[in-house]
Design a protein around this nucleic acid. Structure first.
Length: 506
RNA sequence: GUCUCGUUAGCUCAGCUGGUAGAGCACGUCACUUUUAAUGAUGUGGCCGAAGGUUCGAAUCCUUCACGGGACACCA
């Protein structure tokens, strides 16, 4: 039984006793008329008052008891609501006869949610507090809170029981408040730019738009399997075909792959598509977007990330090949020679795969020597066509594509390109993917003939971009695990949980 | 997937080369009307992640498994 713990039994007993005394341990008649934050702001003048108090004011605040110091006939408690923590002073003689000794001291404890009324005053130690003349229990917590000083530090417990993490680590709330604002600001930014927010299916008959393994589910009514989407890309482009010229979608993608500090099976991205534009326009709007975020989030331009400092006032742009020598320190004369690259990789004790083509090897050099050095925001452009299967070829140089990836703090944060809109080329690329799939590549794209047909009606030249919201939030909040920016990250089930769910389902 | 570290009271952690399971906080009882992780006294509290094995004897040594953290490889 889940409540068989002795401490929980004690607290259940206290709730029973309160009921017997006529106090509802789950009262629903809150009279709260201010928050802790407002209380502290409004009563800042109490420090200047005579006796440092004003008994003519009266406020009712509510919150969870985080600290309780009982000293005989008087007590101090710290109660916390969403806005902050407030000290309240509870003395026997200010409460109804017997309440303090029999009800408060015996049956109310840390973790309970209470409501107190009283006037503002400043204690001898100089802390603005509330002088309580009315106290009631709103919610009895029957489970004891973790230790008040160390709180809850076990990452596993923090992720599995996020509510406990939020109770004990109030700074965690700040991370998720920032996340919420990033999503809200992102939406507003693109709306203000004239983009239309759309919702495309989460359940796809064909999982397309990325190289990834999908989750499969089953639609009973139609008797068919459906794939949770791995990317919204192909649907958003259909909308461009249909005549929308600027669309975006902020939503979840699902990939049935491994989990680690930067991968959760469901993750949030924004993808946006912009007709009559190229990737160069995307570079400009991306800079504007970051500027907008930083302004509205009040973040400093020099943002710490781990032991790095990222200068968001220093956006750079460099072609991939050029970055190999200029940033990666790879000798200029080898970056376009397959044999010399292989030799160079070997001499640096890196894997040198003879089967790779020039573009793939340049990608290897980039990963090994450049990526980690891209601290300030850097647009890497002119990707080799061999490692950019979805991007439009450059008209000037058929070996490279009209594409960029944005790197910040040594990590990829956005991927963008001028979209392929030649339906015959697209069909051929799908067919090549089909061959790869037949050869055992289970992440190869599926043929989506409806999408090819859509392109055959003509898609205006379009630029499209995806930004991983989770990783962006990690960057902005200086968090180093995706689990710290997801309220409920995916976790393996515990054996006991399986048993419970079976019982519930039975 | 590989390597590595961890899992002991509600929480945070000790527990050495194997010999009856420890502390602080929390909780119970008592004292205390301006405290700040309040204080002082006293008491309760354990399937040592799970299963096997070695041993007279295992929290401790060995094997397997489960779940986490970190690193590396692949993907956003």
């Amino acid at each position: 039984m889940i409540f068989d713990n002795k401490l929980i039994q004690q607290r259940i007993e206290k709730a029973k006793l309160l009921k017997e005394y006529g106090f509802n341990p789950y009262a629903n008649n809150s009279q709260r008329n201010t928050t802790v934050e407002k209380y502290i702001n409004v009563n800042g003048d109490i420090f200047e008052k005579e006796n440092k108090r004003d008994a003519n004011r009266h406020y009712i605040v509510s919150g969870r008891i985080k600290f309780l110091r009982i000293m005989g006939k008087a007590s101090f408690a710290k109660i916390e609501d969403e806005s902050g923590m407030l000290q309240v002073y509870i003395a026997r003689d200010n409460l109804p006869e017997g309440f303090y000794n029999n009800i408060f001291k015996k049956n109310i404890e840390v973790g309970d949610i209470i409501e107190v009324g009283g006037y503002p005053f400043v204690t001898g130690k100089g802390e603005l507090s509330l002088h309580v003349d009315d106290l009631k229990l709103l919610t009895k917590a029957i489970a004891p809170l973790p230790e008040k000083f160390h709180g809850i530090t076990d990452k596993e417990v923090r992720y599995r029981k996020r509510y406990l993490d939020l109770i004990m680590n109030s700074e965690v709330r700040r991370t998720f408040a920032i996340r919420s604002r990033v999503i809200s600001l992102t939406r507003r930014f693109f709306e203000e730019k004239g983009f239309l927010e759309v919702e495309t299916p989460m359940m796809h008959p064909i999982a397309g738009g990325a190289n990834a393994k999908p989750f499969v589910t089953h639609h009973n009514a139609l008797g068919v399997d459906r794939y949770l989407r791995i990317a919204p890309e192909l649907y958003l482009k259909r909308l461009i075909v249909g005549g929308f010229e600027a669309v975006f979608e902020i939503n979840r993608n699902f990939r049935n792959e491994g989990m680690d500090a930067t991968h959760n099976p469901e993750f949030t991205s924004i993808e946006f598509y912009w007709a009559y534009k190229t990737y160069k326009d995307l570079i400009e709007i991306t800079k504007e977007y970051f500027h907008y975020l930083f302004n509205h989030l009040d973040l400093p331009t020099l943002l710490p990330y781990g032991d790095m400092e990222v200068n968001f006032g220093n956006f750079r742009e460099i072609p991939l090949i050029k970055s190999l020598s200029e940033i990666g320190g790879v000798p200029e004369d080898i970056v376009c020679d397959k044999g010399k690259i292989l030799e160079y990789l070997r001499s640096n004790n890196l894997e040198a795969n003879e089967a790779m083509n020039l573009g793939q090897l340049q990608g290897e050099l980039f990963d090994a020597f450049v990526e980690a050095k891209l601290i300030d925001p850097t647009f890497i452009t002119e990707y080799p066509v061999e490692i950019s299967p979805l991007a439009r070829r450059s008209d000037d140089n058929p070996a490279i594509t009209e594409r960029f990836e944005l790197f910040i703090a040594g990590r990829e944060i956005a991927n963008a390109f001028s979209e392929l809109n030649d339906p015959v080329d697209q069909l051929e690329r799908f067919e090549a993917q089909m061959d790869a799939k037949a050869c055992g590549d289970d992440e190869a794209h599926e043929m989506d003939s409806d999408f090819v047909e859509a392109l055959s009606y003509g898609m205006a030249p379009t630029a499209g971009q995806g930004i991983g919201i989770d990783r962006l939030v990690m960057l902005l909040t200086n968090e180093h695990s995706i689990r710290d920016v997801l309220l409920f990250p995916a976790m393996k089930p515990l054996p006991q949980q399986c048993d419970n769910s079976n019982e519930e389902n039975a």
